[in-house]
Every structure is written in structure tokens, then in C-alpha cells.
């Protein structure tokens, strides 16, 4: 019973994992991109359309990556090159993305993900690891998209904290001016990582449309992009914590249904509130502890004008 619940929590958390990681990259580059929800919608619809037409799961994922990146490119052009207000721009991107998905989805509403893609994303136990007690069934008896999520988290952690480029990226987020002075190409770093962030958000959206509910319907993201934004703070900009948080929040999102079906009464609204309440508590705790690595990138949200240095 518990194993079943936790296994379902991983699945519910996977779109959050990708989206949160994407937003971490964007924020590490100093850009608060509130367009997560919109980029998820863009990835969801393009991934779905590509999958529908090619019957190829990898091309579908690639389509989602590109769609998310294109959304992020719009945002990056506006906020990095034109220095438009990041909050406004991100919100616009969210509205744009949902409209974009609804618009393109009109003609394929109710279409089903082709069988070859569905069967590609069935649970595939990993030899040896999946026979571990409890953990095996929960973590290592999932679909390949989930495994890809694990790999992405590990790779991102390594990249951010163990490579020169990762160090440069963090420098850009902490102080674009200082990074610039030390010879880092600030705009390039910003563009690349905002786009990478968008690509990951697109993948999160594609998970919703290709795996979670493999039928095209409107409202499939249903606010998960916003949960991802909260998760970034919850995870204090750390990919490993983001993964734990994503699975935790994913679990919370389905906990209410599990309890109801067992006849246990806790208000659904209360449970829906928990991720956000937890985020607020984490923010309070981390602010009080004032540990440097738990703080947001110092230059987050500030447009960078080289001339004003």
C-alpha cells in the first residue's frame, strides 16, 4: 500500500522535478522566470503533436525540449537583451503558453498518444536495483522518463557545483557585474541557461501530456508550474533538494485522494495548501539560519546594464 503510494508520488513529482530544475538554472543565471507554467504547456502540446505524427517517443521529447527553449528564448530576448521587467515578462509567457497550447490543441483535442509511445513509457524495472526491498519498487520500477529525470538531476548537480562553467554560472547569478569583470560572457551565460531551463520545463510538460494523461486535453498542467516556482525556494536552488522536494510535493498532491479512498478525513484544501505552507516555513528557517548556500542568487531579478557598472 505504502509502496504503491510512494511509487505514484514519484510519477506525480516527475513533471515538478523537470520544471523546478529548469527554474533553478534560470534563477542561477539571475533571472526569475515566472513563465514555467507557460513553457510546460508549450512542451506539452509540441511534444504531443510530434509524438502523434512521428510515433517516436524520443522525437516527441526533443520537440518538447525545443518548444520550451523557444518559449524561454522569447523571455531571454526580452529580459536579457531588452531588459524588460522579468516578472511581467514571465507572467506574460505563462498566459501565452497556455493560450498557445489551447490554440494548437483545438484540432487534436481528445487524440490519444500512439501505442508505440505509450508502450515505450511503461514501467521498466532496472535489473538488480529494482529488487532492493521497498526502494527498488518505488524508485527503480518506473518509466524511462523518470530515470532520465534522475540522470538530469545528477548531471545538473555535477555541472553546477563541480565544473568551471557551473561556477561561472553561479557567479553570473550572484553578481553579473563581477562576473563580467572577470571575463565571463554574461549575456551568453544568461541566454544558454535560460534556454536550458525552458527546455527542462518543456520536458516536464511533455511528461504530463505523454505519460501522465496520454490524451490531449486542456488544463493538463493545472498550476503545476507555480508549484515548481515555489519548489525552487523550497529546494534552496539545489538540484538534489529539488528532487526530494518534487517527490514530496508530488506525494502531497495525491495524498488527499489516497486518504479519502481509505476513509480518512482530512480536508483536501488543507492538503493542497501544504506545499506552499512548507515553502513559507523553509523560507523562514533559511532566512533565520542565514546560510550562504541556502540564499537566492544575489543578483536575481536585476537587469544587467554593462554601462552602469
Amino acid at each position: 500500500m505504502l509502496v504503491g503510494f510512494l511509487s505514484a508520488a514519484i510519477i506525480a513529482g516527475t513533471p515538478l522535478l523537470f520544471a523546478t530544475l529548469g527554474e533553478i538554472f534560470s534563477q542561477k543565471a539571475g533571472h526569475l522566470n515566472l513563465g514555467v507554467e507557460g513553457m510546460m504547456y508549450m512542451g506539452a502540446i509540441i511534444g504531443f503533436i510530434v509524438g502523434l505524427n512521428t510515433h517516436n517517443p524520443l522525437l516527441a521529447m526533443l520537440g518538447a525540449v525545443l518548444a520550451g527553449a523557444v518559449g524561454a528564448l522569447l523571455y531571454a530576448f526580452l529580459t536579457v537583451s531588452l531588459r524588460v521587467n522579468q516578472t511581467v515578462c514571465g507572467l506574460t509567457l505563462t498566459i501565452f503558453g497556455e493560450g498557445f497550447a489551447s490554440f494548437l490543441g483545438t484540432s487534436i483535442m481528445g487524440s490519444i498518444v500512439p501505442g508505440d509511445i505509450k508502450s515505450f513509457f511503461v514501467a521498466r524495472p532496472i535489473p538488480v536495483l529494482s529488487s532492493l526491498p521497498y526502494i527498488g519498487d518505488i524508485l527503480f520500477n518506473q518509466d524511462v522518463f523518470v530515470y532520465f529525470g534522475y540522470i538530469t538531476i545528477i548531471a545538473s548537480t555535477y555541472y553546477l557545483f563541480r565544473t568551471k562553467k557551473g561556477l561561472n554560472l553561479r557567479a553570473v547569478g550572484e553578481s553579473a557585474a563581477a562576473a563580467d569583470a572577470s571575463g565571463i560572457n554574461v549575456s551568453l551565460y544568461k541566454y544558454v541557461h535560460i534556454l536550458l531551463g525552458g527546455a527542462l520545463c518543456g520536458l516536464g510538460g511533455a511528461y504530463m501530456s505523454l505519460v501522465t494523461v496520454p490524451v490531449w486535453q486542456e488544463h493538463i498542467i493545472a498550476g503545476r508550474g507555480w508549484i515548481a516556482v515555489a519548489l525552487v525556494i523550497f529546494a534552496s536552488w539545489n538540484p538534489i533538494k529539488a528532487m526530494i522536494g518534487a517527490f514530496l510535493f508530488g506525494g502531497l498532491s495525491i495524498l488527499g485522494f489516497r486518504l479519502q479512498s481509505m476513509g480518512i478525513h482530512i480536508s483536501q484544501y488543507l492538503i493542497d495548501m501544504l506545499p506552499y505552507a512548507a515553502t513559507i516555513i523553509i523560507v523562514i528557517i533559511s532566512t533565520r539560519k542565514n546560510k550562504k548556500e541556502d540564499m537566492p542568487p544575489a543578483d536575481l531579478g536585476n537587469p544587467y546594464f554593462r554601462e552602469e557598472r
Binding site: A8, H219, A222, F257
Partner: peptide, 27 residues
């Protein structure tokens, strides 16, 4: 008959998750 309320008219992923919780209860 076991009932789970989704608190939404249209949330495909949550409706699916609600059904999964009922299936886990032997429905």
C-alpha cells in the same frame, strides 16, 4: 461504492490520480 472527491470539474491528472487511489483500494 467508494468515493473520492477531486474538487475540480476538469483536472485530468488529478482525476487519474484519484482513480488510481481507488484502484489501490481494491475497486
Amino acid at each position: 461504492v467508494k468515493v473520492v472527491y477531486v474538487n475540480s470539474w476538469n483536472d485530468p491528472a488529478n482525476e487519474k490520480a484519484a482513480a488510481e487511489s481507488l484502484l489501490a483500494q481494491d475497486c
